[in-house]
Design a protein around this nucleic acid. Structure first.
Length: 210
DNA sequence: ATCCCGAGGG
DNA sequence: CCCTCTGGAT
């Protein structure tokens, strides 16, 4: 086997790494622009495999033209596509946005459910998106495992190379007290985005810690 | 495992 | 040119 000599960090070692990352970004918070919970859901759905900067460049007009789930549910699919054409995966996202809006407007009376099981059933909404909505919009402790959280967890050997997003989420949640989940999650994203990007591959991960 | 998919950076 | 970006559905 090629990779079985990977030694994972102990719980204490992993907590120390997470603590240092968290302390490097004391004011870390989400960088997506949003006003209502429904719009946050739309923005997070759009953010798959796309920088939040790109998402923020299309959402202001999107929010004005589609003020709520009822408006988006009734919108023409090609019109939605035109609003988000500059971000990646735009056809899939437009389809999911409209279908999600239809469910929220008809089944939930226009209100985004505060419930992970219900959120995950929406088209285009997986565990990561659901966790972002729960944490950002409702302040419910959750750790959304995106590309940054995944990469950092693996690079520091907090989890194994083959760990799934769900396994990473459970591992991080087990290591940290609930009240630190949201902040640590944000700090890991900023650390991954600005301090230890994916390209910084052959460097010692610890050289990026303060 | 594969597809979706434009923009930005190196 | 190549790699990456707060993934999810099939």
């Amino acid at each position: 086997m090629a990779n079985d000599n990977e030694k994972l960090l102990s719980d204490d070692q992993a907590r120390e790494v997470l603590k240092r990352i968290a302390s490097m970004y004391p004011d870390a918070k989400g960088e997506l622009k949003w006003d209502t919970v429904f719009h946050l859901l739309c923005a997070v759905l759009m953010s798959a495999q796309t920088t939040d900067k790109m998402v923020n460049s299309v959402t202001p007009k999107f929010y004005v033209d589609y003020p709520d789930s009822f408006a988006l549910a009734a919108a023409d699919i090609t019109d939605i596509e035109d609003h988000i054409k500059t971000i990646g995966l735009y056809r899939t996202k437009a389809k999911h946005l409209k279908e999600t809006a239809q469910i929220i407007s008809s089944t939930y009376n226009g209100e985004v459910p505060k419930d992970k099981k219900k959120l995950v059933k929406l088209p285009g909404v997986g565990e990561k998106t659901a966790n972002v909505v729960l944490a950002e919009a409702f302040g419910i402790p959750a750790i959304a495992v995106d590309t940054h959280v995944s990469r950092i967890s693996k690079r520091f050997k907090i989890v194994g190379e083959k760990a799934t997003p769900h396994q990473i989420e459970k591992r991080l949640e087990q290591l940290l007290p609930e009240q630190e989940w949201i902040h640590t999650h944000h700090a890991m994203i900023l650390f991954g985005r600005y301090t230890m990007p994916a390209r910084a591959k052959n460097k010692d991960p610890y050289s990026f810690l303060k």
